[in-house]
Nucleic acid binder design. Structure first.
Lengths: 263, 263
DNA sequence: CCGCATTTGTTCGTATGTATT
DNA sequence: TAATACATACGAACAAATGCG
């Protein structure tokens, strides 16, 4: 762990598992192990490199953590294959349009909806008192049927009474906003951070638990500046990157970002 | 790996190292193991949990990968301590001002400067032909003497001839811009992504190689839209988060910007 | 400065459990 | 059901880093 990176010379010193790791890694980048290919079994690698199983497994576990290979119990070990989606954050960001422009097919899947007591962070973002209730919507989004994000949105139950009834009737969030006299709203703040996935996030995003996720937290407010929604979206770090393009020609006026993203 | 998260009941099944991990983790969050504290030695943990060294080490390695503890050979294992810096991205983002507003002390350290052949990604961003030369500036930045970012900036050598002489004379980038008739410039595009650290990044950022980094790539253009600089900054993922605040409908107070500082 | 005790790092051998085919 | 392949676990030994006398 507290080791030097890789220098060319110190092969024999400091771990045979690193030799195994480097050789496999090299085989992958050189193309002799193509994405999707199955690696030799652990026993085969033991023989080939003349090391014990521990060393082989250590090498494999490092490569899996780095996202280069994927291990499946009972089946084998395979070279991982990725492709990165560029998600453009503009003034009017739409999930669907964004992906379509890149030739991807967007889709979504509801996970759960419920009225719950606001967790502390949510209560703080929405400026609610501790113990206040919020309506939570959890969704999973896909690009070409590959999961890319998990989102949780929270709306104050007091501001949107009987939201669950309206949702069950199939009303979209925008429609519900309109019904409560909110024709438009603004993105107040956005926070971007990274961390390792927790709980079942890695599983739901179909990515290695060792690969990081990007977390985007945002708060939307109505035209009077009152918070109406807080959401946190967890993106598969190995499959997404965000871009912000600035229009050059005219000096950009202080136009706030009108945000909206889901579905 | 492909397991349910943690349910209360299935303790005995599916790994004793997980029991050890959970217990230590609990001890940390409950406070009985405070940040900075030294954990019991591996042998002590073996006795305490009645498991072999492998199980103890597996638990420890998972916790270390999660950033909860830090292992030092020959010394021991310690509870990690973090604090997150919120880096505000506004219209005029300044490293120094940003940190000062949070009560942090910013500082920087030059790593290297050189005229090199532009790497492919850099050439593409700056719209240079393959083989064109660029002037590279590598720096490391700190907050309260804790490293938080590594940056590489690239300027076209053709556009800024003899940049190394000017730099050696101590001229700042802004001054050099002015000398070449660039009074102002714009941020054209920004890309944000996450990945695991590579090479010596983890070491330079003093963070675990298992903790992710945030990568911010940006291209600056002059007022005619010609690219003049491309830079890539790698941020310590466990110590930074970005926020974007949008001014709302009414500008509430007058802008409290008094003294300003460039870096 | 040297040597020793402590503590983590690497490696081997071996056995058994669990998932997949 | 059986064979294959990865997962977990025990024991043992030696290497490497650290700190102390």
């Amino acid at each position: 762990m507290t080791n030097d990176p890789d220098l060319a010379t110190l092969k024999s010193r400091s771990g045979q598992w690193q030799v195994v790791e480097r050789e496999i890694s090299r085989a992958i980048t050189s193309g002799s192990l193509a994405p999707g290919n199955k690696l030799p079994t652990e026993t085969e690698l033991m023989d080939r490199f003349n090391v014990g199983r521990h060393s082989v497994r250590r090498a494999i576990s490092e490569l899996a953590a780095a996202g280069k290979i994927r291990v499946e119990q009972g089946r084998g070990t395979f070279v991982e294959e990725h492709s990165v989606i560029t998600y453009n954050i503009a003034r009017r960001t739409r999930f669907r349009k964004n992906l379509l422009e890149q030739g991807r097919t967007p889709s979504g899947q509801p996970i759960s909806e419920a009225e719950i007591v606001a967790p502390p962070t949510v209560a703080a973002a929405l400026k609610l008192e501790a113990g206040a209730k919020v309506y939570m919507i959890a969704r999973r989004s896909f690009a070409d049927d590959v999961p890319i994000s998990l989102s949780h949105s929270y709306h104050p139950a007091e501001r949107f009474p009987n939201m669950h009834l309206r949702r069950r009737a199939g009303e979209s969030v925008t429609v519900i906003y309109a019904a409560f006299g909110i024709p438009d709203y603004l993105r107040q703040s956005t926070t971007i951070l990274t961390r390792r996935p927790i709980g079942d996030e890695a599983q739901l995003l179909a990515q290695s638990p060792h690969q990081p996720v990007l977390v985007v937290q945002k708060t939307d407010v109505d035209m009077e500046g009152r918070p109406i929604a807080y959401s946190e979206t967890v993106w598969a770090g190995e499959r997404i990157q965000f871009t912000i393009e600035n229009e050059l020609a005219e000096p950009p006026p202080a136009s706030p970002v009108k945000g909206q993203n889901n579905e």
